[in-house]
């Protein structure tokens, strides 16, 4: 399975308003496996994700989903491609006016011609997969953050997409819920053969689910590859990240009151 075309980019530059945040991104995300995109806060993980999700226009370069070249698509094909991508947003982004069941059924009703009852049953199946079928008729505001994330995953899986994107699925969750989500991700990959892209900075979670890592740093890809390879590569960005070693703040003593202090013995 690994090695067949998943998602590839070449020379990709992304950013906002013509100002690149990331440039020269060459990625090869293997199909049927879980890729973790990691990096420090503000390094452009979300920007890269938004570009891969076609929410932002790439400033340069090319994105391929399998054999489909993104820039060659026009509106109709773009919508078709979008239906083959499931997304869990950082804040789950469930529709607040709909119950969990309606949220999961929504993509089915929008993108397919299934009857209402069938969409309902399919949505219930997906909710069951994430363990939320008892809460099907709750509104998103009435369930916990972890449940909303799981419901978001169920909604992302509604159309059985070959590609699944998860934006910080573990952020703000307790270790147990976080581990449950990790298990769910592995289960999805193994049972459905989905190509999964996870943006995260939870080291524990990366160790559990990551088949392939992409480390972003300084506006580009610092390293990518299999976790065991990448971790011994000795790349400073990777080492610092996994060692959780803070970079010392720049010394600011010059010009401040600290520099005027007389030594204590004087």
């Amino acid at each position: 399975m690994v090695g067949s075309p998943g998602i590839t980019t070449s020379g990709l530059a992304c950013g906002y308003g013509g100002r690149p945040v990331l440039s020269d991104i060459d990625l090869e995300l293997p199909a049927g496996s879980t890729t973790c995109i990691l990096g420090r806060s503000g390094c452009g993980k979300s920007t890269l994700l938004r570009t891969l999700l076609l929410l932002e226009e790439p400033l340069a370069g090319e994105i391929r989903f399998g054999n489909i070249v993104l820039s060659e698509l026009v509106a109709r094909g773009l919508d078709d491609l979008r239906r083959s991508i499931g997304v869990l947003f950082q804040g789950s982004a469930l529709f607040n006016s709909m119950t969990l069941l309606e949220n999961v059924a929504f993509p089915l009703l929008e993108s397919t011609r299934v009857a209402h009852d069938l969409a309902r049953d399919l949505a219930l199946l997906k909710l069951d997969l994430v363990g939320l079928s008892p809460f099907a008729h709750y509104l998103p505001a009435a369930v916990s953050g972890g449940m909303r994330k799981r419901c978001g995953i169920a909604r992302a899986l509604a159309l059985d997409p070959p590609f699944l994107f998860l934006d910080e699925p573990n952020a703000g969750l307790d270790p147990i819920t976080s581990a449950e989500i990790d298990r769910l991700v592995i289960e999805i990959k193994e049972t459905l053969g989905t190509t999964i892209v996870v943006v995260t900075h939870e080291v524990r979670s990366i160790e559990t689910i990551g088949d392939h890592l992409v480390m972003l740093s300084n506006g580009g890809v610092a390293a990518q590859g299999r976790p065991d390879v990448i971790r011994v590569s000795g790349h400073p960005a990777v080492t610092e990240f996994f060692a959780r070693r803070p970079v010392p703040p720049p010394s600011n003593a010059a010009g401040g009151l600290g520099s005027l202090l007389l030594p204590p013995e004087e």
Partner: peptide, 17 residues
């Protein structure tokens, strides 16, 4: 606006809606 802020508009777009 609320949907935009909570990424729900983006969610619609990635669903092809």
């Amino acid at each position: 606006g609320t949907m935009k802020v909570s990424e729900e508009v983006d969610a619609l777009r990635v669903m092809g809606v």
